[in-house]
Nucleic acid binder design. Structure first.
Length: 271
DNA sequence: AATCGCGCCTGACGGC
DNA sequence: TGCCGTCAGGCGCGAT
């Protein structure tokens, strides 16, 4: 499942291979993604050059002279650059054929992702406009979190996963960062000290950075058949480890539902 | 304004 | 073995 580090890895993998390339054809086999792929997409893109590729939250923004594509991988999506003659599998929904015989291909079995088109400034698009700061930016820090949490009564984990507060922190990293900073995921966001938020912000950055570094592995064999090596599973301290010993105190880790999401924690290390 | 619950969709997994 | 029910997951959206 693409969390922010995998989206970043995807970006770093495809950007050098697609930027500056002209799109010679677009094949759309399935329009029914989270939102329908716009009707005129192929016509608008054909003949356009891909100018830049960037990431905002878990969205990828691919710029052309005519407008921008906004791509989200949902939870099962992947983008890869392949030889233009590679036959399409059952969930290969869109191919962007490039002028050097390669193509960018979107695969998304569960179709939770999206490919949208905007002719105006992509950061002004309704999906991106209200997003909070990037978790790896200087703007995201303990003081920011502390002020944003003022009087909030929802669980800190839900608060941390709210894209209006900070963009792109998913379930796995929320669990990991809360464990690393010793904060119980169900604690009310408004009842956490500035000092503890400082630790939490650092933990978010640390876990994301480490996962991005691990994603470098994926980066290197990016064009191989399929690449979910599960490399960062081993680095996870609590996620999906209910019943296993806490890495700090060795007492069994718990699974608990907070909101509608499974949370993993240590009852004696997190308060 | 903040918070909650829903639904989109498929593959993996467990129980029978 | 095969069939079926359950669940996970991101996240926008509508309801409260």
């Amino acid at each position: 499942m693409p969390e922010l580090p995998e989206v970043e890895t995807t970006l770093r993998g495809i950007a050098p291979l697609i930027t500056g390339r002209r799109i010679t054809a677009v094949h759309i086999r399935e329009r029914r993604l989270r939102w329908p792929v716009p009707r005129g997409l192929a016509a608008r893109l054909t003949g356009q050059t891909l100018l830049t590729a960037q990431r905002r939250a878990k969205y990828l923004l691919l710029a052309t002279g005519a407008g921008h594509m906004i791509v989200h991988l949902g939870m099962s999506g992947s983008l890869r650059v392949l030889d233009g003659a590679t036959p399409a599998g059952p969930h290969d929904h869109i191919d962007w054929v490039l002028d050097n015989g390669t193509m960018l291909r979107l695969r998304d079995p569960r179709r939770f992702g999206c490919v949208l088109w905007t002719r105006s400034e992509p950061f002004e698009h309704p999906l991106l406009k209200g997003l909070g700061p990037e978790p790896l930016s200087a703007q995201f820090n303990g003081a920011y979190l502390y002020h944003a949490a003022h009087k909030r009564r929802s669980a800190v984990k839900a608060f941390l996963m709210d894209s209006h507060i900070v963009a792109g922190v998913g379930n796995i990293y929320a669990n990991e960062a809360l464990f690393a900073s010793g904060i119980h995921p169900a604690r009310a966001a408004g009842r956490i000290s500035a000092e503890r938020y400082q630790r939490l912000a650092e933990a978010v950055k640390y876990t994301l950075r480490r996962a991005i570094t691990a994603g470098g592995t994926t980066l290197r064999d990016f064009t191989r058949a399929d690449g979910n090596p599960g490399y960062f599973r081993h680095a996870l301290q609590v996620y999906d480890r209910a019943g296993e010993p806490c890495p700090r105190c060795a007492r069994p880790l718990q699974r608990q539902w907070i909101g509608q999401r499974a949370s993993f924690l240590c009852r004696s290390c997190q308060h």
